[in-house]
Structure formats: C-alpha cells, structure tokens
C-alpha cells in the first residue's frame, strides 16, 4: 500500500460488528486524536461510523464479533469478497468469545425457552423471513471465511489497534509488544 505518486491514494477501510458487544469499536475510538491522523491516510467504506450499507472494494476490513446467524455470514462473505486484507479483531471474532457460551446449549431449546406466548405459555418462535436465522452455534470468523490477521484482546486497546493498523498501512508485519498484549 505504497503512497508513492503525485496524488495520495487513501487506504480504504471497512469495519463491522457481528456477534459482539461493540466494545472493539469503542476501543477503536480510543485512538482519540489519532483519528485525525488516520483520516489523513485512510477513508471508511462500510462501517458503523459511516452507515454505508454495503461494502465496495477496499483495502482492509476489520471484523468484530463472532458469526451467529445468516446475516453475519452474508456480511463476512461480503467483506471477504471486497477486502484485500481481512482482520479478526478481538476475542469474539477470533474464538467466539462470550456469545459462544451458548454453544453448549441446544439452539432450539434456547429459542423455545425465550419466545413464549405471554397468555398461553406456549412457545412462539418468530419466523419472519426478515429475521436472520440463527446458526446452531456461534463460530469464529476464520471458520467461515479466510482470515489474514488476528488482533487479540477483549477488547484490544486503542494503542494496540493503532499500532496494528499503522503497521498494516505502512506495509510492515504487524507486531504488538508485550505491553499491548498484557491484559492484567
């Protein structure tokens, strides 16, 4: 991603949050004033920050959260199809994280337990085609599409995200020091 040439070509970033808590995105905002610096070299495609609904060709896609339903699958596939580099960000994207606690339970048992008719007490699981259908389990992103890099943490700190992103943008192999990987 060389910035050589007369006109500075900005790096195009996409981000999304799947089965997660948005904590990684909040942490992303923790790069604070460096957002200005980032805006100098990068611009956003599909992202909660832009509200662009569908992704176009881009350089880097950051994915927060695991994959828990059909919509998540469509989103990761779209980002994978469009991004040159796809990064799994945070514990949920890498391992399934907290949402994957449901993996020990049967998905139908959960649905019928949660969705009950208040009057009769009978199960009434919503079945509108507009609703994304849940998968039997929550899966890490790398089991659904190819992942190029993983950025660990719950969430990764703003500093870690900044270091990782700038390494990627400048063409260096991303390296996080111990201090950026130490969560105690």
């Amino acid at each position: 991603m060389s910035t050589a040439g007369q006109e500075k070509v900005k790096v195009r970033l996409a981000t999304t949050s799947l089965a997660g808590c948005f904590g990684c995105h909040m942490s992303f905002l923790d790069i604070d004033e460096r957002l200005f610096e980032l805006a100098e070299i990068a611009e956003f495609d599909r992202s909660p920050l832009t509200d662009i609904k569908h992704c176009g060709p881009c350089d880097i896609a950051l994915i927060e959260g695991g994959v828990c339903n059909t919509d998540n699958v469509h989103v990761v596939r779209e980002l994978r199809a469009n991004a040159k580099i796809l990064v799994a960000v945070g514990a949920c994207a890498i391992n399934g994280g907290l949402p994957a606690l449901r993996n020990k339970l049967d998905v139908n048992a959960i649905l019928t337990q949660v969705y009950r008719d208040p009057k009769t007490g009978e199960p009434c699981v919503p079945n509108s085609p507009e609703l994304p259908l849940p998968l039997d389990m929550v899966y890490p992103v790398n089991e659904i599409v190819r992942v190029d890099y993983s950025l660990p943490g719950c969430p990764p700190s703003g500093d870690a995200i900044w270091k990782f992103l700038t390494d990627l943008i400048l063409g260096r192999m991303p390296r996080l020091d111990y201090s950026l990987l130490n969560y105690d």
Binding site: T70, V73, D106, V107, N108, L111, T112, V125, P126, N127, P129, E130, P132, L133, P134, L135, D136, M137, Y139, N142, E143, I144, V145, R146
Partner: peptide, 26 residues
Amino acid sequence: DFEPAIDLERALEPARRITGRDDAEA
C-alpha cells in the same frame, strides 16, 4: 481458496426446524 470449517446448511437446520422456515433467506 477457502472452505468453511463447518457445513453452514447443516448449522442452520435446527433453527429452520423450530421456525418452520424454508424461504431463501433460511
């Protein structure tokens, strides 16, 4: 280039059964 670790169609089967859905989105 890549093949998912799981069979996604099979992973949707339980929820399809309970919701009775069989539309394209399911």
